[in-house]
């Protein structure tokens, strides 16, 4: 597969954005019954490109297809490229089944990241729903690595049921830290669950933050983000400091094909992270 890279002209000519770079699956971690985390390394031994928290890659399962997947690794360690994938369709199912030693293609990173600079000096509220946690993980790691730059850190993580919680061990580690508060809630649970059951918005009153000086990062099902953004704005968080990571059917990743059009924006090029102030009207319209 190294011929792919050797086909890229040297000497300042931009690399072809359509060409995936071959990466080897180093490790495959089962997160839930249908979700895995793949740890990838370039097959040519060079370093993967650096990424900003919130960006995504187009990940190619050769012979099957390509799918947009958020980067869930540590931005301080870009050499360990991590993607968490849920087997939800043909391509993601095949990707989630990739075994260590197999090769996948990677294009990217693409898209706008979480605006970390706009959170500096502020309380930060992070709200994740289901597989919304992986795109938020790099931002959380960035904040925890530079904890002194930020105010209070409140994390609310919701999932369908206890077995659907990803990064369970890491979440438990975060829970033991004194410099962040994390609340975990699920939509429904059996008797073995002694944690919270209910909407992530129901956990907001227990979060400690000063709304006028707070920034919020939201990622999860669109209806969850909509309800949460509304609740945060109602609590006094400025709409232009509530950020949502949108999901649409991304195909090219570079704003060429139009598959991910969201009103006047292409999610892959102009997003996936948008301020709520820019999205509010579009989120309420069923046709968009």
């Amino acid at each position: 597969m190294s011929t792919v890279d050797s086909a890229v002209p040297a000497g300042g000519v931009p690399p072809n954005p359509w060409l995936p770079r071959p990466f080897r699956v180093e490790e495959r971690v089962a997160e839930t019954g249908d979700t895995v985390t793949l740890c990838l390394r370039p097959e040519d031994g060079t370093a993967p490109p650096p990424f900003a928290p919130g960006q995504f890659n187009m990940v190619y399962r050769f012979g099957v297809g390509e799918v947009a997947v958020s980067i869930s690794g540590d931005p301080a360690r870009p050499e360990e490229l991590r993607h968490t994938v849920r087997a939800a369709g043909k391509i993601s199912e095949s990707l989630a089944g990739a075994a260590p030693g197999e090769t996948v293609g990677v294009r990217g990173p693409y898209g706008t990241g979480w605006p970390m600079e706009r959170l500096a000096g502020r309380d930060v509220v992070v709200v994740a729903g289901g597989l919304g946690l992986p795109p938020l993980r790099p931002a959380l790691l960035e904040i925890l690595a530079h904890r002194e730059r930020y105010g209070r850190l409140e994390v609310i993580y919701g999932a369908r049921s206890p077995p659907d919680l990803v990064y369970y061990d890491e979440v438990q580690t975060w829970r033991r830290r004194s410099d962040l508060r994390i609340q975990v809630t699920v939509d429904a649970a059996g008797r073995e669950w002694y944690g919270d059951v209910g909407l992530v918005t129901a956990r907001l009153p227990d979060a400690r933050f000063d709304p006028p000086r707070t920034g919020a990062l939201l990622c999860g099902p669109e209806i969850m983000m909509r309800l949460t953004a509304r609740a945060l704005e109602q609590a006094g968080v400025p709409a232009d400091r509530i950020f949502l990571s949108m999901e649409r059917n991304m195909k090219c990743g570079i704003g060429s094909c139009g598959h991910c059009q969201f009103g006047q924006s292409f999610v892959c090029r102009d997003g996936p992270v948008f301020p709520y102030s820019a999205l509010r009207d579009r989120l309420d319209r069923r046709e968009i």
Partner: peptide, 17 residues
């Protein structure tokens, strides 16, 4: 209203979509 909204999201099963 909150319990109704909760029930609605449970019916929609939003995390599976």
């Amino acid at each position: 209203a909150e319990r109704l909204e909760m029930a609605r999201l449970q019916v929609l099963d939003v995390h599976r979509r």
